[in-house]
Design a protein around this nucleic acid. Sequence first.
RNA 1: GCCACUGUAGCUCAGUCGGUAGAGCACCGCAUUCGUAAUGCGGGGGUCAUCGGUUCGAAUCCGAUCAGUGGCUCCA
Length: 641
Amino acid sequence: MTQIRLTLPDQSVREVPAGTTGREVAAMIGPGLAKAALAARVGGVIWDLDRPIGEDASFAILTDRDPDSLELLRHSTAHILATAVRELFPGAGIGFGPPIEDGFYYDFDVPRPFTPEDLEAIERKMDEVVGRDYAFQREVVDRAEANRRFADDPLKLERISELGDDEVISVYTDGPFQDLCRGPHIPSTGRLKHFKLLHGAGAYWRGDERRQMLQRIYGTAWFKKEDLAAYLHRLEEARKRDHRRLGKELDLFVFHPSSPGSAFWTDRGTTIYREVNDYIRALQQQAGYQEIKTPLLYNKLLWERSGHWGKYRENMFLVLDNESGEHDFSLKPMNCPSHHLLFGMRKHSYRELPVRYATFDVLHRNELTGALAGLTRVRQFQQDDCHIYLRPDQIAGEVHALTQMILAVYATFGLTATLKFATRPPQRIGEDAMWDRAEADLRAALEATGLPYELKEGDGAFYGPKIDFDVSDSIGRKWQLGTIQLDYAAPERFDLGYVGEDNAEHRPVVIHRAMCGSFERFIAILIEHFAGAFPLWLSPEQVRVLPVTDQQDEAAARVVARLRAAGIRAALDAGNSTLNYRIREGEVGKVPYMAVVGQREADADTVAIRVRGAGNKQEVVPVAEFVARLAAQIGSRALDA
RNA sequence: GCCACUGUAGCUCAGUCGGUAGAGCACCGCAUUCGUAAUGCGGGGGUCAUCGGUUCGAAUCCGAUCAGUGGCUCCA
């Protein structure tokens, strides 16, 4: 019998007969490892434990400590889910069931949606399947055999028909259930210990709204009980800091059925909105941007020229023109066309470039009703939108400055960003030479930041390459926020030009740039990121002054007046409730500072400061010092309150 | 838009078998004058999302509409 050589992770080599399985190798190494083994990594690829190994390779055993094992577990859990569903709903068609971040899902073709009671019953049935400890068995079959086995399931047949002739068709069986699957899987269903089904949802077959609606079940699975508990706890935490909930609790914004998808901002919410806006405005003013305002309403002349009328009309709010009786006008869904119009309305010299138009105008997009969600998907919003018109030789310098500015903005909010560089897509306009230069310029600017970035080949816009900024918040969720896009198409479409040194007309390049993107969505992210406990400069109410008894009402009112005179948002809480009660209200309301004024403080012109979240570690300081300290903290937009 | 679920006081939520609506918080009043996370007592507040149907009778059952929530390829 031929021997093969397996190189273990410690670089030692083990000779075994060809055809030995991962399980057998694990047993040779040690009984403990054999017991813990979930799969084998053969030549870098994860294999089922019982799959025979035919040639020399690197070899490692996967246990529950291996990060890749979770994916394995979750995919197998999806199969166990399908096994249970097939027992309870014998005719169910089987869609896709991949592992996803933190869990898995599986899509089923069933005559009616799953109810919460169904999910409970399925979960109990899964417990049974786990108890029976079925082995996951892999078989390789030919196309005819695959078609025969899944003859009763059109979804699987469709998938089989798409497989190339050179692809291996494998089938996995656990007990009564078999599934077309690439694998690999855990050795048996009994290895699953800690899982939970989370919710059902409708999902189109292959994500295509023209195809039938399948019923998806989402779930999660973990190796350790504590991990499952921690995950469920994390879900609960995320729910607690949901901006829709906090927006209501902290009185920041509301929605009304009369204008679905558009927020009503209260005074407190508007304060946050304005602070974010003022901050961006100040940065842009320092960097030489021109803030402009352009109309909200345009007739279709503009939209035909920009191309929106053909491609984007379904997302635009059309407005009836009384004279023509036609819906020839639309609220603008984007700022770019109007900026190009303004730029094009007079001559520009090469000397004045780059021209940087910034705006905070209101935009409207007619999103599908089902897509609306809190502040993250709205129909009316404002952006920190900017279009920069420049000469090609200015691209590198400008992109460098933009990248620095965007990262500085995120740092101010305590957000960290990762960068993605997206290059020319297959469908594009412009010559290769233009793309060569554009990509080189963008990449050079990116390299100059010294930041790591991910290359997304072919993911650019059809009109130019771009840099996208993915931001992580305090609980590790990712949001795509900023973008820098080079655009060579718009200047052509809008026939933009500038007069060069040679006294001839030249085409500028346009850069589209957003940092926060939609303020609505950005503020939603901030609310969840800070869990409503905003840094001082963003807090709607920065200081709440509490007199101990009504004997100190006047002294407290004087403190409020002094704070306000220094531009600090201060409020007096002199209700007839107890001091304890008012302090609790301040803490629950996440006010960064409470300043208590009792007789001692009133006499000494001091306040007793209580910092949000710091308990009763109070500090007594002169009012003047308190004012100066807060003013400095606000002025620097410090992160901690 | 499509599938499912939800809609009861400002907020969070009870409401049994179809028999005429309730709690806590918030709000208002009175008392309390309080030193770092909820003082006590009393009071006002609801077209049970809207419209229609079934019924002697509907928050409850049925239908439609409106709105919200979870989803709608992280590819066997």
